[in-house]
Simulated assay, not measured.
Amino acid sequence: MSKYLVDKFLYTVDRDAELVERYRDDPRGTVAWWEAERANAVLNCHTGEASTWLRFTDAEREALAEHDYVALFGLGAHPFLTLTLFIAMFERDHTEPLGFQKQYAVRLAHFDLPYPDIAT
């Protein structure tokens, strides 16, 4: 798994309100666009530097396109990055306070220690 690239996606999308909405409304299209246009940009670099080799695996691409944060966690995506982005996208769909956070915890409850490695 290219944990760096998945975490970079989660980090960059979460920091742009328009991208959050785009990802919520069109996850598959947003993932394809981001992988083609942004994946190889150097993080936090505005000078036009880029690499050429970064690509999602099929499992990563599918988990991102399906908003499947449980699969992303299992693949080693950083749990704080998944949680903050998915809160931004889905907390509004819950009427109970901390509704999404509680759902996140329940859906990840089957994981036992040690958790998947989140080192990049």
Rank of each mutant, 00 (worst) to 15 (best):
K3I: 02
Y4A: 05
L5P: 12
L5K: 06
V6Q: 00
K8R: 10
F9E: 07
L10Q: 02
T12E: 15
T12P: 04
V13L: 00
V13D: 12
V13H: 04
D16C: 12
D16E: 09
E18W: 08
L19H: 07
L19V: 01
V20H: 09
V20L: 09
R22D: 05
Y23C: 02
R24T: 07
D25V: 06
D25C: 08
D26S: 15
D26W: 11
P27S: 10
R28W: 08
T30R: 07
T30H: 09
A32P: 05
W33E: 14
W33S: 06
W34T: 00
E35P: 05
R38Y: 12
R38N: 07
A41I: 14
V42R: 14
V42I: 15
V42T: 10
L43A: 13
L43W: 11
T47E: 14
E49N: 15
S51C: 01
T52G: 08
T52I: 13
L54A: 13
F56E: 06
T57V: 03
D58M: 00
A59R: 12
R61D: 03
R61K: 13
A63I: 02
L64R: 04
A65C: 11
E66H: 05
Y69I: 00
Y69R: 02
Y69T: 00
L72M: 13
F73V: 00
G74A: 03
G74R: 06
A77T: 00
P79N: 00
F80H: 12
F80C: 06
F80Q: 09
L83T: 04
L83N: 06
L85Q: 04
L85G: 01
L85P: 07
I87L: 05
A88H: 11
M89R: 05
F90A: 08
F90K: 11
R92V: 06
D93V: 04
E96M: 14
P97Q: 07
P97W: 10
L98R: 15
L98A: 10
G99Y: 08
F100G: 01
F100Q: 14
F100P: 03
Q101H: 10
Q101D: 09
Y104Q: 08
Y104F: 14
Y104T: 02
V106S: 04
R107A: 03
L108F: 07
A109N: 13
H110L: 04
F111W: 10
F111I: 05
F111T: 02
L113A: 11
Y115V: 08
Y115D: 02
D117R: 13
I118N: 14
T120F: 15
